[in-house]
Design a protein around this nucleic acid. Structure first.
Lengths: 333, 333
DNA sequence: TCTTTGTGTTTAATCGTTTAAACATTCATT
DNA sequence: AATGAATGTTTAAACGATTAAACACAAAGA
């Protein structure tokens, strides 16, 4: 950054006034006390010298950086990157810059990244934390740092949060299958403590009428465990006629394998997915899915965070409704 | 950010020394001049009070923020988000935080975002710029700001850049088709001034032996124009037997449409793609594609940027080789 | 004439660091 | 005893902004 940037002082010197006056003029403060003439001269010189305030200096004084930290599980996962995009846009509208980090579902990495965020004096945090992060949430609360949990939340520690109503989303997905005459439904879900994912499972299984089986998939072994679960369903159990996948990665792995096994959708097997992905476009049958309102999620997260920054005494927990998009993968011919 | 953070001064007061000494100890400077005893006491108190240096203050003094700006076309596009992920990791290793922005292929938006980055005193920039951005590059150069162009570059203004050798990547893709007896190849490409994309086109078409047709797709009308191009190939022209798509979005739109039109791959039509996407997993035939070395791209970009930050007199232009991954979509049975 | 009020501008402290330079003390050398 | 090094620590300015408070001066009211 050579070519030293112009500072308030440069302008002050050139115009022949104090830096204070320049600051007042450029910030539009003390309106009505400053002479038009001087004000104009200052503004003009500022433009001439291509002045841009040094945010760092400003931040040091005001104790506001107008930046936020966004922690995601993995920015290269489409769900995360779409959220990132929306948060970035919303934040920008409110004058915040966004610093991003990926936790890879690791608590230690999350802690480390949050520390980096805080050292950089971000004004607030938007976090999608991995399982077993209750302590992190508790620590942030005790330090009174403004933050919002996004997508994932922890009932044991109350905090600002934005998520969808996973229970009812799953419920309606399964109801849809039932009403389309799929009666032996199996659910493929993660083996996790994350509440939002377990809510998806609960919503799908806690229905009196349903005769369901569950396949649990370990995070680091998605393809392997999905295949294993599907094999089990196809062979040993009573004949399954539909699968509900509770995440986008699970769906992709599952469809890939069903393809390989020549299972025809929806004739041999009904399929319903959680989240949409581009990949569906290339599948021979269009896929029914639970559509999360990503735009609203992102917008609400930024709004709550902004609110927390300005007044961290309120707490809000927001659950948005997901919408069921019905396509061909759940319609028996 | 309530609960006032502890500062150097707090430690100094508690230990009974000057802030300077605390700073020296904590930064490991003036080694050998400071008494062990005092040093230990300072370190201990720092830990007790959970001291973390205020990066903002430090930045103001040192004129280094240890942050970089990353401008992408659209963080929600998989290519961008994967790059973002890699850049984020590499940058973190070198102690840089990453601020992200998406240009949406707009020059004005790019300018605006870069300005935000610079006001925040980022140490350097990594940029994927839209077409007609030569002036931006020239301005950055004249201001002597350290930056690296990533993926996209502009031959008319020399600058640090990292990209793949698009020409030879396309060349080998087309050669592969030719050697598999596809002789009427058509290329679907963007209607753009972006050099890296036109190099893909040039690499594919500038071969004596090839009998090729080109479909140009406008950025805002991908699905529409891809369909139109494919229709044209299928109807009016001499029978096309292979399509080379020069980007991932083009590929997805194209395959989707070929599906709809019941064109069988690879029997009726050979297909080769640029970039891999998850979506391929769900297609009935595995897709051959040009694989960009994303990890290397990201790593080299960060390395060059770091180099530019420390010495902005060198210029490097790096072209990495992409690899052709051969699958079933280009093998005639 | 003397205060008061209003207008226009400056002074100076402050944010939390870094760091060159100054200071003070001890110790060895001549 | 005087000089010089070596060691250990402090002083104080600086980075570039913000902002309460002070200052200076003119016009208006008592």
């Amino acid at each position: 950054m050579a070519q030293k940037k112009t500072s308030l002082k440069d302008i002050a010197t050139k115009v022949g006034v104090s830096t204070a006056l320049v600051s007042y003029v450029l910030n539009g403060k003390m309106k009505g006390r400053i002479s038009e003439e001087v004000a104009n001269r200052i503004k003009q010189v500022a433009k001439e010298l291509n002045y841009h305030p040094n945010q760092i200096a400003r931040s040091l004084k005001t104790n506001k950086t107008n930046s936020i930290g966004l922690l995601l599980a993995d920015i290269s996962n489409p769900f995360s990157s779409q959220i990132a995009r929306i948060v970035e846009n919303e934040a920008d509208k409110m004058g915040y810059a966004v610093i991003i980090g990926s936790s890879d579902e690791s608590v230690e990495k999350s802690e480390k990244i949050i520390e980096v965020f805080l050292n950089r004096q971000v004004d607030g945090l938007i976090l999608s934390l991995p399982e077993k992060s209750e302590q992190i949430v508790a620590d942030l609360k005790s330090k009174d740092i403004p933050f919002v949990l996004l997508d994932r939340y922890f009932p044991s520690v109350a905090a600002n949060s934005v998520a969808i109503d996973n229970f009812s989303a799953s419920e309606s997905a399964v109801n849809h299958l039932l009403s389309n005459n799929y009666n032996n439904i199996c659910i493929i879900s993660y083996d996790t403590e994350l509440v939002h994912l377990n809510e998806r499972l609960r919503g799908a299984t806690e229905q009196k009428e349903i005769n369901s089986t569950v396949g649990k998939v370990r995070l680091g072994h998605i393809q392997e465990d999905v295949e294993c679960a599907i094999d089990k369903f196809l062979n040993t159990e009573q004949s399954i006629d539909a699968i509900f996948f509770t995440s986008n990665l699970l769906t992709i792995s599952g469809l890939k394998y069903l393809n390989k096994k020549k299972v025809i959708i929806p004739e041999d097997m009904g399929v319903i997915a959680f989240d949409k992905t581009d990949a569906f476009d290339l599948f021979y049958t269009s896929i029914s899915y639970v559509n999360q309102p990503l735009n609203k999620l992102g917008r609400e997260a930024v709004r709550l965070m902004h609110q927390a920054i300005n007044d961290n005494t309120k707490r809000e927990q927001i659950f948005l409704l997901a919408e069921l998009i019905v396509r061909d993968s759940t319609s028996r011919k």
